[in-house]
Amino acid sequence: MNIFVSIKQIPDTETKIKLNPNNSWIDTTGIKWVLSPFDEIAVEEAIRLKEKNPGSTVTVLSAGPARITEAIRTALAMGADTGIQIELPETADNNLVAKALAATIRREPKFDIVFTGKEAADDGAGQVSQLLAEYLDIPSITVVVSADYSPTSVKCKREIEGGSFEMVEASLPAVIAGQKGMNEPRYASLPNIMKAKKKEIKTLKMADLGISEADQKIRHKNFQLPLPKQAGKRITGDPADQAKELVRLLHQEAKVV
């Protein structure tokens, strides 16, 4: 099987986010970039599928600025065979990314299945897997927690609200967007990390793919940081008073109930 995985490099969750001088983007200096956790799950699923189907290959794709090579290497260290790095500007939107990925996959002689994460933990929109599927004119199944694969179709368990699940069946090729719980991504062994340094990563530019910045459909601007977290409020009084005040604060101030 020709298996593809699309990955994204995002700021680590512990990184403090700062804005650039004109609030048009975040300040990317000093950020620790990591492979998005949902994409790790996608890579792991791809490798497991390859292990079950000897002779398969796993190609990992990523579209973004130059720094993403490291994330591709991480995926290669987990066991992917080759990488393709597509150069896009830092501020590329979901649409440009999906178009770039679709154009790249269409250049390949054959593709059977594409894995992605259900969303990237930085943008949080969760659009790319569906956009990509639409551009490739294939089904997309998102928020997948488990899947059974056959050479021509896939049956997925998909998470919906209220703790319920949908069982969805689709013909291959399809895009599968993985959710937490689908698998436990492996820790790359040292020999695999060493081997990954020598695996091939092809680079492509927008021009090679017939796309341009005109394919970008939305832009983010006027970034704002939330107000700094206030020191915790101590709620005093007897238990009845405390409960009353707490609920009032949660409902009216924090708006979480």
């Binding site: 680590d12 969750t13 512990e14 990184t15 403090k16 620790k32 990591v34 820790y187």
Partner: peptide, 16 residues
């Protein structure tokens, strides 16, 4: 391991 690799600490806290 992930925390040590990313943030240089066994717990998930940033260097700051």
């Amino acid at each position: 391991f992930k925390n040590l690799e990313t943030n240089g600490s066994p717990w998930a806290f940033s260097p700051e």
